[in-house]
Design a protein around this nucleic acid. Structure first.
Lengths: 168, 168
DNA sequence: GATTTTATGTCAGCTATGTTGACTTTCCAA
DNA sequence: TTGGAAAGTCAACATAGCTGACATAAAATC
């Protein structure tokens, strides 16, 4: 409630003033908008939206994942995801295979066409990310990742950390 | 198109593999979701949405700003913003004063009630940001800000940099 | 074997927030 | 004095969230 500048933390306090925190909030807002701008532009050509991009992204990251797993990562309702998934399957970008062990489950995979769109979207997004990383430098990148990680919901942080981090 | 791991950059290349970039992309996605979660929860109680929050945030940051300026920062159409602004004015959270010099313009201000909601939303969001900053440490915070800044649209970066950064 | 739980899909309807297009009012400035 | 910028409004639409209700199949449990 109060100024919240002064705390008992042992760390340097310079980064915890309200103004600093507000700047961080704005930085997130502006950067996130730029971050989604390129894919959004591409998606228009296909009459898809951000929701399709997110589904495609995670199916690519973890081929064969189940609908429930994807649901947990996206944090939307199954009805909302289903609408997206259905169009992707109909359009031949995603394949939903009945689970081998548990036949109630659907394992999701990108088709060749799906992988191609994933590449197009991700190329654009990675290009911007790469430019930002270059401009900021390696040690800034490490800090960037640390702060984002600390900000995440713990469950998703666990997933995030479990993903491999460097090319094999 | 190709692996895009190898470049001619003089910097350390370790941060520019596709995997590293993809992790950065996911980090943005997950962190942004967490970043908006607290305000979203609060806004439900008032029957407002994220769009209202954004308007309130920027009006608080720059009291008296014009509708056009706000439009540029939010990156939406005036019709979309107008709907939000109208409800905020009707509900007595925002005051739109006719411009002194140019009477076509409307200068936007938060009322006491608007400032109170701003504080509630921003307290929650800053609390999360503060926790993440503390967990990551001061030098990580600097890097975080540098990368986000590099990612922004240049016009918004200019605005962003022009805002004061430390408590006066 | 019967029952319950789980995973998924689907229908209907609602809301928030974005869009475009057309139009009006106000009013500054050339 | 008139052209055009700034602001506001109305209508119609799309996307992507949401809730609730219900269906089906398969697994798990009793």
């Amino acid at each position: 409630m109060a100024g919240s500048t002064a705390t008992q933390s042992g760390e340097s306090l310079l980064f915890l003033t309200d103004e600093q925190l507000r700047k961080g909030i704005e930085a997130m807002f502006f950067a996130y908008r730029a971050f989604t701008a390129d894919p959004d532009r591409i998606l228009e050509n296909y009459e898809y939206g951000r929701a399709h991009h997110r589904a495609i992204h995670f199916i690519n990251r973890q081929p064969g994942l189940t609908v429930n797993t994807l649901l947990a990562m996206l944090g939307v309702t199954k009805q909302s995801l289903n609408r997206v998934l259905r169009t992707l399957v109909e359009d031949g970008l995603v394949e939903a295979r009945v689970g081998r062990r548990d036949k109630r489950e659907r394992n999701l995979f990108l088709t060749e066409a799906g992988a191609a769109l994933e590449r197009e979207l991700s190329d654009a997004q990675r290009a911007r990310m790469r430019a930002a990383y270059r401009a900021a430098g390696p040690s800034a990148v490490a800090g960037f990742r640390q702060v984002l990680e600390a900000m995440m919901d713990p469950d998703l942080r666990r997933y995030y950390q479990s993903m491999k981090d460097s090319a094999p």
